[in-house]
């Protein structure tokens, strides 16, 4: 029963969604199933929250290494959830817009979430530079090709890249660094990416069919 019901659901939903694309009569059924998916996705938020509390809660209770961070995560999660759900400090009241100015949730967003998010992303610049210095070496032919390509792309995206070849006559326009960078992206990168995408798509089709037909069952977990 534990395995048969999910297999039947997958089989029915899978075929209905395929048919809804080709047969107009089943289109509304396809819409309904897509809405069911969105509802399930919303419930996944609750599941995720519960899982977070369970995992980090256990870490705090058992005083496992790094339990302090887990405590911060729990306090942050519960605090944000409470001020968001109760609309604490919201000038428009409990029925007002959750994003109304002056509310506690907006203070959390403006003064904690936003700067922390931007800081984490900005740190990348430092690590990219350090990694580029230590790892980007012309050790073999493949590395040389990668290095030269990256160099042209990087150079082509700066003002110096434009200035370096601005003196070239119009007939040699294709030799200008930004144009070479653009050519690499539009021709070489596009061709490679398309090939990868077609390969992935074929893989997705075959895997989906295996899942719908019940051949592939690893998503159900172990017996």
């Amino acid at each position: 029963m534990k395995r048969t019901v999910p297999l039947v659901i997958t089989f029915v939903v899978g075929w209905v969604l395929i048919f809804s694309v080709f047969f107009p009569y089943t289109e509304s059924l396809g819409e309904d199933f897509s809405v069911f998916f969105d509802i399930i996705a919303s419930i996944a938020f609750i599941l995720g929250g519960g899982s977070l509390i369970k995992m980090f809660g256990a870490k705090v209770i058992k005083r496992q290494p790094g339990w302090g961070y887990a405590l911060v995560a729990i306090v942050g999660f519960v605090g944000t959830l409470v001020v968001g759900l109760l609309k604490t400090g919201n000038p428009e009241g409990i029925t007002g817009n959750v994003l109304a100015e002056g509310s506690a949730i907006m203070a959390v967003y403006d003064y904690m979430f936003k700067p922390c998010g931007a800081t984490m992303f900005a740190l990348l610049a430092f690590y990219v530079a350090s990694a580029a210095y230590r790892a980007f070496r012309a050790k073999n032919t493949e590395a040389v090709i990668l290095l030269v390509t990256a160099f042209i792309i990087l150079f082509g995206r700066t003002f110096l890249g434009t200035l370096a070849t601005i003196w070239l006559p119009e007939q040699l326009d294709f030799l200008k660094i930004p144009n070479i960078a653009s050519w690499i992206m539009i021709v070489l990168n596009q061709a490679g990416n398309r090939a990868i995408m077609i390969g992935i798509s074929l893989g997705i089709i075959s895997t989906s069919l295996k899942v719908i037909l019940g051949i592939e069952r690893s998503y159900l977990g172990s017996e």
Partner: peptide
């Protein structure tokens, strides 16, 4: 970003 790109390029050249 442009200046940072140039610094990264300089670092790559120096590293090599």
């Amino acid at each position: 970003q442009a200046i940072a790109h140039l610094v990264i390029m300089l670092l790559i050249v120096t590293g090599n």
